[in-house]
Lab assay of single mutants.
Amino acid sequence: RSRTAFTAQQLEALEKTFQKTHYPDVVMRERLAMCTNLPEARVQVWFKNRRAKFRK
């Protein structure tokens, strides 16, 4: 699988949600996936990586 390049709009939506909660539930992730045209699995991995970045 190749690396996913996120658009500015996708990142904005993801970051906005991350500010609200670092652990979105499956419903919220699926809604984000639909809004951003990304698979739910990519949204889940983005949050996992973003939490790791946040802890540093």
Results as ranks from 00 to 15, higher is better:
1 R>G: 08
1 R>P: 09
1 R>H: 14
2 S>P: 04
2 S>N: 14
2 S>T: 13
3 R>M: 14
3 R>I: 14
3 R>C: 13
4 T>H: 08
4 T>V: 09
4 T>D: 15
4 T>Q: 14
5 A>S: 13
6 F>A: 09
6 F>Q: 06
6 F>D: 00
6 F>W: 05
7 T>I: 02
8 A>P: 09
8 A>R: 05
9 Q>T: 09
9 Q>Y: 02
9 Q>I: 06
9 Q>L: 06
11 L>V: 10
12 E>F: 04
12 E>W: 02
14 L>A: 01
14 L>T: 03
14 L>Q: 06
14 L>K: 01
15 E>G: 05
17 T>R: 01
18 F>N: 02
18 F>E: 05
19 Q>I: 04
20 K>M: 13
20 K>Y: 08
21 T>E: 08
21 T>G: 03
21 T>D: 03
22 H>R: 08
23 Y>L: 04
23 Y>K: 02
23 Y>F: 07
24 P>L: 03
24 P>Y: 04
24 P>V: 03
24 P>H: 05
25 D>T: 03
25 D>P: 01
27 V>M: 11
27 V>N: 04
27 V>E: 12
27 V>A: 14
28 M>I: 06
28 M>R: 06
28 M>D: 11
29 R>E: 07
29 R>Y: 13
30 E>H: 05
30 E>W: 11
30 E>P: 07
30 E>F: 05
31 R>E: 15
31 R>F: 04
34 M>P: 03
34 M>D: 12
36 T>P: 02
36 T>L: 14
37 N>D: 10
37 N>I: 02
37 N>V: 01
38 L>P: 03
38 L>C: 04
38 L>M: 09
38 L>D: 00
39 P>R: 06
40 E>W: 05
40 E>R: 04
40 E>S: 04
41 A>E: 11
41 A>D: 11
41 A>M: 08
42 R>E: 15
43 V>I: 13
44 Q>L: 11
44 Q>K: 08
44 Q>G: 08
45 V>T: 15
45 V>F: 06
45 V>I: 05
46 W>M: 04
46 W>A: 07
46 W>P: 03
47 F>G: 00
48 K>Y: 10
48 K>L: 10
49 N>Y: 09
49 N>P: 00
49 N>L: 11
51 R>D: 00
51 R>H: 01
51 R>I: 05
52 A>W: 00
52 A>G: 01
53 K>R: 10
53 K>N: 10
53 K>W: 07
53 K>D: 14
